[in-house]
Every structure is written in structure tokens, then in C-alpha cells.
């Protein structure tokens, strides 16, 4: 859901590519209402592409038609969205190559002086 926002970088600036990541998995309670809420808001292809980079391979390439009530799918989505945390790593813009650093699980998306 994040894109590059460097000044002038308006096209091909999504999804940010994760690199050199350290992941942490943390079990979380399944929240179906939330997942259903997110179904309409996610850019699913970008999510799948990002997950593949992280070696999370169980998401189907397209959203199943019955996604909202498909327990198996919701469980996988839950795992990808809410149980997988990037602790350290970089998010790189596919267009301008700006690198956003993630440290202690906190992405730093501040722009530099010349980028605003």
C-alpha cells in the first residue's frame, strides 16, 4: 500500500521492492472482518509479487472469486499481511531507485532535502 513519493517520481513507482530483509513471524489472531475489509483495498498482484520475493509462495496468483468466505485463502492472506513482519531491510523504488530503510520494524519513508 506504499509507493515511492519522491518528487517527480510518479510512474512505475509501485510496488516498492523489498531487499535484504530479515523477517520475523509472529502469530496473530485471525481477524476475518479486517481481511474482508482489505480485500477491496489491496492491490493483490503487487502483494503476491512482494510475497514471492519474500519466499511466501502459498498465495494464489489471482484472488479467488469466493475470497471473502474462503477460509483457506483468508488464512494465507492473514499470514502474509499480519503475521509476517519485516524487521530490517530496504524498500527500493522500481523507478528512481530511492531506498527506504526499515530498521527495528519501522520503515523510514522520509525524503531527503532534494527530493521534496
Amino acid at each position: 500500500m506504499l509507493q515511492c513519493h519522491v518528487k517527480g517520481c510518479n510512474a512505475n513507482n509501485f510496488p516498492l521492492e523489498l531487499q535484504e530483509v530479515v523477517l520475523e513471524e509472529q502469530e496473530a489472531e485471525l481477524n476475518e472482518d479486517f481481511l474482508r475489509n482489505m480485500l477491496g483495498k489491496l492491490e493483490y498482484e503487487a502483494l503476491v509479487a512482494t510475497c514471492l520475493k519474500l519466499n511466501i509462495q502459498d498465495l494464489p496468483p489471482t484472488i479467488p472469486e469466493d475470497a471473502a468466505y474462503n477460509d483457506d485463502f483468508l488464512q494465507k492472506l492473514h499470514h502474509a499481511l499480519l503475521e509476517t513482519h519485516v524487521i530490517t531491510g530496504k524498500m527500493v523504488c522500481p523507478n528512481c531507485q530511492h531506498t527506504y530503510v526499515i530498521r527495528d520494524g519501522i520503515p523510514n519513508m522520509l525524503l531527503a532535502e532534494h527530493e521534496v
Binding site: M1, I106, L111
Partner: peptide, 16 residues
Amino acid sequence: MDALVFDVCHSPWRNI
């Protein structure tokens, strides 16, 4: 879920 560092005036949220 997350806490991110950025300036709201230059926010990276995708516009859905």
C-alpha cells in the same frame, strides 16, 4: 500493525 516515519505532506500511501 505498523508505525512508519514520514511527513504527512509527503505521504507514500497509495491512493485507492
